[in-house]
Structures are given as structure tokens and as C-alpha cells.
Amino acid sequence: MAAVATDPRPAQVRATAVDSRYRRGAGRWLVLAAAVLVGLAVLAPFGIMLLNAFKSPQDYAANGPLSWPSSLYLDGVVAFWERTDFPVKLWNSVFISALVAVGGALLSLLNAYAIGIGRVKGRLWIIALFLLANMLPQEALIYPLFTMAQSVGLSNSQWSVIIIFTVIQSAFGTYLLSSVLGTFPPALLEAAALDGASRWRILWQVVFPIVRPTLSVLMIFFFIWTWNEFFIPLVMLTSNDTQTIPIALASLQGDRMMDAPTINAGSLVSLVPAVIFFLIFQRTLTRGVTAGAVK
């Protein structure tokens, strides 16, 4: 504000302001048009996907990607559904993501309870370690994890993926929850301690109910992040019956049978669960995105 007030060219600034007020009628529509155009550019691939998911290969060859399908063609969806055995993939994705969401939130809560409320010694270093863990490239862990999973009989097992992501996701969760719990009202804790509640009871009967909204945001994050993960599931889950949706879709790539409608139908079917999930939790999520941004 100070910079504006002490602007050395007040006359000029005022002149442009008058100008802009003068042009406001037309100008604002131009700005709106530009913003809408950017939005359309973002939406274009989705639109093309929708148009071509239900179009027969002959129709596509004759009329191209921008035409309205001449008839509703469902073979693409059916082909993708059957070739990937989609219900199995869907269940695998849900199973892995849900367990990671719950497990990750639980582990984050325990860590954050010790760091944010217990204020254990050296907590800044502990948090720094968690942040570091969050930044590591998965490539620097994958080969040892791969051999470890083999040696304990968890190769090609979803449990290896669940355990790994529970820990990786809770690195972020611990960081976020620790700063939330660091500001927890001490009066509540003291009152509970005076009543003779143990630490364990304070955690579940005082702290947990109050941070439940934050925990649910974390769980949504963990679910979506795990759902979208690619690298570790690609390496760890090697057979058809254990793979997740993104891996199944990617492994169909380059397949000669993958014509335009199958690719588009596959992409569409694969992103539907994520979109549904997003729409259900949109409000919680936007709050959560914000929470992540506050240092």
C-alpha cells in the first residue's frame, strides 16, 4: 500500500485509472472472454475424450475426432472393461487407497501427538526428517524395497504397497498435524489431566474429536494421492489380479487392439471414480488445499 501511495507518478496513475473506468464496459468482457478461453483450452482434451469414447472406429476414421458420434457405440467401454477386468482393478484401487488413508492418518496422529502435544525433545529435527522423507524420490527406495518385499514373501502383494504408502503419506500428515496440534488449547489438556485421564485417553477423548476435520481432509488427500500413484505400484504389482487402475490403463498402451474408442473409453472409465470422489468431497478438499499452503 505504501508503495502505491508514494508512487512518484500520481498524475499518470490517475489518468490510467480514469481510462480503465472509461473502458470498463467493454474491457471486462474481454478479460472474461480470455479467462473462459483458458478454461476451454483446459477442458478441450476432456471434451475430445467424451466425444470419442462412444464413437465407432469407422465413424472416427470417416468423421474425425470433433464430430458428434453418429450412433452410440459402447463396444469401446465393453472392450476396456473386459480386457482389464475392470471390477477387479477398481476393487484393488479402492482397497489399497482406503487402507492407506486410514493407516496413514492414524500413524500421522500418533506421531503428531508426540511432537505437537508431547513436545518431545528435538522435535524440530524430527519434523525436518519427515519433510525430507516426503521429498525423497521413490527411485532411491524402490530397489531395496523390491528386494525386501521378495525376501518377506510380499512380492506382487498389495500389502507391500499399502505399507509403503502408509508410511510415505504419513510423512506429510505428520508435518501438517504437528503444526495443527502445536496450537492445541493447553487449557483442555490441563483440565483432562486434572481429571486423571491418561495420555492415551486424552488422545482419543480430547484431541481426536477436535482434530477430526483435519484428519478427514488428510484421509481424502491420502486416498486420492494413493489412487493416482504410479511408480511404486508399477514396480511392485506385477500380475493382472493385483494391479490398480492407472497401471492397468497404462499397460494396455501400445496394444494393437487399442483403437481410439477403447483408449478414450478406458481413460473415461478410469477417471470417473476420481471425479466422483472429488465432487463428493470438494468442499472439504478446497479447505484442505488451503491448509497445506499455510506454512
Binding site: L129, I164, A171
Partner: peptide
């Protein structure tokens, strides 16, 4: 409160 860090510490040691 250290015991609350135990599961996290073990898990991070093993997985990361």
C-alpha cells in the same frame, strides 16, 4: 510421549 513415536519411528526406519 516417546512411546507414541515408536510405531512411526519403526515404520520410517523400515520403509524409508
Amino acid at each position: 510421549y516417546l512411546s507414541y513415536l515408536l510405531p512411526g519411528a519403526v515404520a520410517f526406519g523400515v520403509v524409508i
